[in-house]
Design a binder for these strands. Structure first.
Lengths: 243, 243
DNA sequence: CTGTTTATAGTCGTGATGACCATTAACAGG
DNA sequence: CCTGTTAATGGTCATCACGACTATAAACAG
């Protein structure tokens, strides 16, 4: 225990607060939406912010993120859903009050229940990604990073099914891609690619969903066991993309 | 991140130490090597560990990582080299003494000068990735994560040039891919792909390097302005890869 | 019954890719 | 000097993935 005792003391009186921030995305009403809370206190009182909170002494950042997600959304089942560490934001001054290092996570939800405001927030709500105005702190950047990450992961992983309910049609899956990427895709080609990737989606034996409305009934699929896409499903018409 | 004053007080007396850990990789002697330091104190005295250290109050994790890298390697020029945030490790108990949250970074070096041991370490040295035995703390996992990340980024970015000196041959570049991936690549096909990607490498006008030994002299290239690879240069013979 | 909407099933040309083969230019060693 | 080895470079060829496109089927709206 001789190791770095000086370091311990040095930083003991200038501690870092460690928090998690959550960029929770869903596809609702054909639009990419993000879970936001309205801040009740200064700074940024009245501004929207990403949900999040302190990491408690006994838990990892992942555990804290999952706990906060359950608290903020009122979801009972947060064990199975997709939660991924995005990156850590540690710029001095990102919180005007004290030194806060925040580990950001991205979560994807399929059906998107209406959230109830937690204890710390004036209200919580889903807001469209595009009209999620200036957020508190550096949350605009975190949200943009999350969007970019999710968009990139759709290309080479089976992540898109995390936006879908347990059973879905290829049209719904395609709308996920189109919504996150902000593009339109050719339906037959999308279909060909998805079905050509073994383990991406599995057909539900007896199922053909009446979409409730127009069009021919679509076959129903479930998420398959695969996690990676080979070959990838690339976004159209881009020459260079960020590294 | 909707904390209030109560949160401040609650965690002020149980602070988190925030550190950075560095997975510094290079290609030397045809092998992937990693920069390690031998710990001088308990715990894990005598074990190898990734270099790293505390984030100071005034600096971001990125700044701290760059500073630690300069200190550990004795490199004067750490401004231009590739440094990327890997992820943050926050499991309780990952350091037996206290609660330490560590932001891990990956750095890639081309020529690999011999490091000099810093103040905290008994010695510092390059070790082959494969024989980097059990490391201190959870550094084995961090190192494996870094390897996987770098391998994946070679596929769709121009990152490989970060392993090469300012001027290099296509053979050297190919050896980077083969070393990191642990595979062999077809030379003409590799050549075709690299040269077909505009901005990946630029030919040096007058240059043809005598490799000092066998074989026909190779043309010399510099890293080009591109950062992304379109289409990607995929690892051979893999059905599914981790997400 | 007609138009609209969506799902599904193809076709076709282009281009990327993997598996090869051939040639060139250096050196090593007899 | 000649020959074998090594590495760089240039090329072929069949296969396959992909984008663009057309066609058909099955539902509903009016």
């Amino acid at each position: 225990m001789t190791f770095d005792r000086a370091g311990y003391d040095k930083y003991a009186y200038e501690p870092f607060a460690v928090t998690v921030d959550l960029a929770v995305l869903t596809v609702r009403d054909g639009a990419l939406q993000v879970l936001l809370v309205e801040r009740g206190q200064e700074p940024y009182a009245g501004h929207w912010a990403l949900p999040g909170g302190f990491v408690e002494p006994h838990e990892s950042a992942e555990t804290a993120a999952r706990r906060e997600l359950a608290e903020e959304t009122g979801l009972a089942d947060v064990t199975g859903l997709h939660l991924e560490q995005l990156r850590t934001y540690s710029e001095p001054g990102r919180d005007p009050r004290m030194r806060v290092v925040s580990v950001a996570f991205t979560a994807l939800l399929p059906h998107a229940p209406e959230p109830q405001a937690g204890t710390d927030a004036a209200q919580a709500s889903w807001l469209p990604y595009d009209s999620a105005g200036p957020l508190a702190f550096d949350h605009d950047r975190i949200l943009a990073d999350a969007h970019e990450r999710v968009g990139a992961k759709l290309e080479y992983t089976c992540l898109a099914t995390a936006f879908c309910p347990p059973e879905f049609t290829l049209g719904e899956l395609q709308r996920v891609y189109e919504t996150v990427w902000g593009t339109t895709l050719d339906r037959p080609n999308f279909r060909r690619k998805v079905l050509a990737t073994p383990g991406f989606v599995d057909p539900v034996p007896g199922g053909a969903r009446l979409t409730g409305g127009r069009g021919k009934p679509a076959a129903v699929y479930r998420a398959g066991p695969a996690t990676a896409l080979h070959p990838p499903l690339l976004r159209p018409s881009r020459e260079g993309r960020p590294a």
